[in-house]
Nucleic acid binder design. Structure first.
Lengths: 140, 140
DNA sequence: CCGAATCCCTCTGGATACTG
DNA sequence: CAGTATCCAGAGGGATTCGG
């Protein structure tokens, strides 16, 4: 699945219709996914659910920093996109189980590849960020 | 490079210190990259620069929908993180060339894998999104 | 040609309080 | 237990204008 790196150039060709993408608001599927899971909490939740199913408060305890509001919103949107499933058990008190859908599981692979890249190159990125505005790289 | 899917669970383990990540504002390297490149224009610019170097107005012509302000901002931040390089040629009129850095090129691989996933599964996601709030999946 | 500066609007996300 | 409802601050992003 495109795992083998065949040389870098134009590997993203299929998401760039033409050299000049033309139309108004580009709907790039890649950017769509990036923004989808690029919010503050989705990756964290997906990663936890990648291990095992969780119940709502169980997730909340595992990620104390998230507010109830944002946890709910994150779970709802992940469910809306079909990345996770939500099952209500009509017990007393009620319990709700969240788990990764097959679609969500299939996303973990590519995400993991990106995560590998991230941890590997973060030092280099950080070095660049802390570098002052650069004394201007110009050539006559 | 983690391309082979070894069974889904805990593939992102290295970005999850413990089951309970603890501290205040989690600094997840993966989320950091996702947000970095998940803005509106970065992927598009990176993809173009993945083909060949571009000059400023050349990029602007290739992506008419982007404002000068956002193009500049996008290029600046990509440069700040070391993903692209900026070279000023002191000609008249002046010209500025942007090109992918080696770091930027190394990112295209993982991004491309995610792009493949995106185009492959987008129909399924769209089907889910258009599905009404679901008649409640509950079990006693 | 390659930007910087300003204004303004929207969307994200946090705090807090309340409910079936 | 598993959420909703409100309010509010800050970042993202567009339009427009000006400058070296």
């Amino acid at each position: 699945m495109s795992g083998t790196n065949m040389g870098v150039p134009s590997m993203l060709a299929h998401v760039l219709p033409t050299p000049v993408p033309a139309a108004e608001h580009e709907v790039c599927p890649l950017t769509d996914v990036l923004r989808r899971v690029g919010d503050k909490w989705s990756v964290l939740v997906l990663t936890l659910l990648g291990r095992r199913p969780y119940r709502y408060n169980e997730l909340h305890r595992s990620v104390p920093a998230i507010s109830q509001r944002m946890l709910t919103r994150t779970l709802r949107s992940l469910e809306t996109d079909g990345l996770i499933s939500r099952t209500v058990f009509a017990t007393v008190p009620p319990s709700v189980e969240y788990r990764l859908s097959p679609l969500g599981e299939s996303l973990l692979g590519p995400l993991s590849a990106l995560a590998d890249w991230a941890v590997q190159h973060q030092p280099e990125i950080d070095r660049h960020r802390q570098r002052p505005p650069s004394p201007f790289d110009s050539r006559p």
